[in-house]
Design a protein around this nucleic acid. Sequence first.
DNA 1: AACGAGTCTGAACTAGTGTTCAGTTCTTAT
DNA 2: ATAAGAACTGAACACTAGTTCAGACTCGTT
Lengths: 224, 224
Amino acid sequence: MVYRRTHQVVKRLAARRSAILAAARETCAEGGMAAVQIAPVAVRANVAAGTVYRYFPSKADLISELIADVSRDELAAIRRAADAAPGPSSALAAAVTTVAVHVVSHRKLSWGILAEPVEVDVTESRLASRREIAGEVESRIAAAIRAGHLPAQDTALAAAALLGALHEALVGPMAPDNLEDQAKLRDAVQTVTLLALRAVGVMDARARGLVVQAVLPTKMAAGA
Amino acid sequence: MVYRRTHQVVKRLAARRSAILAAARETCAEGGMAAVQIAPVAVRANVAAGTVYRYFPSKADLISELIADVSRDELAAIRRAADAAPGPSSALAAAVTTVAVHVVSHRKLSWGILAEPVEVDVTESRLASRREIAGEVESRIAAAIRAGHLPAQDTALAAAALLGALHEALVGPMAPDNLEDQAKLRDAVQTVTLLALRAVGVMDARARGLVVQAVLPTKMAAGA
DNA sequence: AACGAGTCTGAACTAGTGTTCAGTTCTTAT
DNA sequence: ATAAGAACTGAACACTAGTTCAGACTCGTT
């Protein structure tokens, strides 16, 4: 064997891979999933179309990884927020608020990841992504129930419904389109968060100070 | 002029049109939106592919009409159920239950109408469909608020969130897949309905007898 | 420097469907 | 019966975007 991958090459390859994924992510954030096509993504990543196929077997795989990637970031953010909360109820509230803030902050990306029509089949990774997020929310609901703060209920169904409410109200086609205004955006986040919490049995989240001031990040770089 | 459309011909043309739409609907109910392709639909309607284009300018138009059609039926069912209820709160509950029952009864069709990826652009008609249904729910929420049964709130956002919760929990990819069992199906409908009502501020729908026994139709012919 | 192996390029290929249209069949009025 | 207008057929066409691959280029070893 006269050729072995040197460390430098390995790094370069990894960088390319990341560049392609990042290009896909940016493309999705700008134009939704419909815009995530091999040729434009390749251009954006400064590679040829064929090169994409040296890193991802197919477009479906590329998008699946994109979904997993965004999902991972989202999950981490939720955990971070929830773990920082003082108790189970506020942890749940923090989790929900985090999701709400994230989806309104990156609506096109969220819509693309969650539900926007794609030509290729990405149901599996979308399902996995939802399961991850829903699982986290579900365990927070369960914790609040154990703590006696919420009535007993089907936690899986509750988590799914809760996320569905957030998504439909904030990113789906029904979402209000005037969310440019920071104040209105914040209102919407708070309203929907309250609604979602009420759905699982939180009696008056506002009074109990559970819904923390939803601080919308002004500079939101790579996070989902 | 030696040819004029006779009444009989007009009727036959209308029947063909309906047959094509019906074929599209059945195809969607069986295999989802992905299965709604011109050739199979034409076969099912006993016409040639080209004939479809004498009735619908394009596939997008066909699907748009399909969506509008299903939506119309759905809306009618909701109105019927809600209008039959004794008061604003139970009208809302009836509306929500109706939606829940319908979507679980025709999951593939619902999923296709609501959110399943399609090659052509049908965002407009999907949006219109959602607005119709959401509008109806919204007015029921508003009525309940006026009657003092619910706290004041953003009714548009509430309606969107409520429907999102139903859809995600009952028809989306996260929906439990063991809904074959009638009893479980009924449970799921009730649970999610309660959850949705709680979200808008109904305190204990069960205690107040709002959630009527969700009777699942055994023979559900054409209704959405 | 030279050679083998790996990597990249991008034009050409492919596949799947929506759409068209020239020819055929049906319908109406004389 | 016949002619003219309308409707129908279905094979051929067109379009779009994912995928391939032969050749060019780069990297690592001797």
